[in-house]
Design a protein around this nucleic acid. Structure first.
Length: 296
DNA sequence: CTGGGGACCTGCTAGC
DNA sequence: TGCTAGCAGGTCCCCA
C-alpha cells in the first residue's frame, strides 16, 4: 500500500491531532510487529509532548520532547486511524460509546491534545510488516535511514543527478528505481507510473540512459521530471482525499488513485495517439506494468 | 560491490 | 457454495 505519497498523506492527516499533543499512555496489544517493540516502548513515550511529525522516504518520524525520535513504517498493510472524543457525540452514537477495537489494532496512542480534549491514534496492520523503533541518536544515525538516497520531492533530483546515480548500472530501470539507496520513497506502483510517463521500458538496463550522449541526457531529464511529477501529483491527490476521509471515519492511508498503467493489464494505453495495450510482466518476482508500444 | 530469491504475515479474489 | 492457488503497494537477509 504505502509508498512515499501515501506516507506523506498519513503524516499530514496525523499532524493536526498529534503535533503539540501530550502522550498520556501507549497501549501495545502484542509484543511485536515486524520487530519486537523496543524495551520500555510505552513507558518512554508516556507523559511526553510531541513536537512535530516528519517523514523520510516511507518512514514517518515523530519528534518528541525528552524522548528518542520515534520511527514508524507502515509496511504493506499498515494504517492509522484517529478517534477524537467528539466521536462519542456523533449522530447515531446515543450511548456515548467508544468505537470498538478492530482486528489488527496493534498500537493505541492516547493523547491529550494541545487544544484540550483527548484523542486516540490507532495503528492497524494486518500483515505486520510495519514496525516502530526509536532512533536514539537522531534519524540520520539510524541504520535503516542512514543509507537512504535522494528524496524525489523538491528539486534535488534532476536529470544530471539521476544520470550519475544510474551510470554503469546493469540492472533493469525498474530495479534501480526501487533501490532506496538511490532514490528513497518510490515503490512498485510509482516506478511503473514514472517509467510510463517518461516513455522508458522497465526492462531497459539502467545505465543506458546515463551515457554521455545527448539522447541519454534527454532520457534522464525526462525520467527525473516524470518521477518528480508522479510523486507530486499523488501527494496532491492524497491531500484532496484527506479532507473527505478524516471526516468519514478517521482512517488514513488509503485513497483512490487513477493509475495510468498500474493494475491496467490489457487496457488501452492512455498516451495520446498510442494504440498500445498495457502489458504486465514479473521483475524480481513483482508485477511491472508498461506499454510495449510507447515505452522504449 | 551488485543482483536475485526467499522470508516475513494475513486477506482478498479468481477460478475450479 | 466452498475450497485453493495466487497475488498484494515493503524490506531484510543470505547467497552467488
Amino acid at each position: 500500500m504505502p509508498e512515499l505519497p501515501e506516507v506523506e498523506t498519513v503524516r499530514r492527516g496525523l499532524q493536526p491531532v498529534m503535533e503539540g499533543a501530550r502522550i498520556l499512555r501507549v497501549e501495545t496489544r502484542r509484543p511485536d510487529l515486524r520487530f519486537p517493540f523496543p524495551e520500555h516502548f510505552a513507558q518512554r513515550l508516556a507523559g511526553h509532548r510531541i513536537v512535530s511529525l516528519g517523514r523520510r522516504a516511507k518512514y514517518l518520524t515523530a519528534h518528541i520532547e525528552d524522548a528518542p525520535v520515534l520511527i514508524c513504517h507502515l509496511g504493506m498493510s499498515g494504517s492509522f486511524r484517529v478517534e477524537a472524543d467528539d466521536d462519542a457525540h456523533a449522530p447515531g452514537n446515543f450511548h456515548h460509546e467508544r468505537p470498538k477495537a478492530a482486528a489488527h489494532d496493534h498500537v493505541v496512542f492516547h493523547l491529550q491534545q494541545a487544544q484540550g480534549g483527548e484523542a486516540r491514534v490507532i495503528f492497524n496492520d494486518p500483515r505486520r510488516f510495519g514496525f516502530m523503533l526509536f532512533a536514539e541518536n537522531g534519524i540520520d544515525e539510524h541504520p535503516m535511514l542512514s543509507g537512504l538516497g535522494v528524496e524525489p520531492t523538491g528539486n534535488a533530483l534532476d536529470g544530471k543527478l539521476l544520470a550519475e546515480l544510474l551510470r554503469d548500472r546493469k540492472s533493469p530501470l525498474k530495479a534501480a528505481l526501487l533501490d532506496q539507496r538511490l532514490i528513497a520513497g518510490l515503490g512498485n506502483i510509482y516506478v511503473s507510473e514514472a517509467l510510463w510517463r517518461a516513455g522508458l521500458l522497465p526492462t531497459r538496463p539502467a545505465g543506458t540512459i546515463a551515457r554521455r550522449s545527448s539522447k541519454a541526457a534527454q532520457s534522464s531529464e525526462r525520467l527525473a521530471t516524470a518521477i518528480r511529477s508522479v510523486i507530486a501529483d499523488a501527494i496532491e491527490a492524497g491531500g484532496s482525499s484527506l479532507r473527505d476521509y478524516v471526516q468519514a471515519d478517521g482512517s488514513l492511508g488509503y485513497f483512490q488513485h487513477s493509475f495510468s498503467v498500474y493494475d491496467r493489464e490489457g487496457a488501452p494505453c492512455r498516451t495520446p495517439g498510442c494504440t498500445g495495450h498495457i502489458k504486465r510482466i514479473a521483475q524480481s518476482g513483482r508485477s511491472t506494468f508498461y506499454c510495449p508500444v510507447c515505452q522504449h
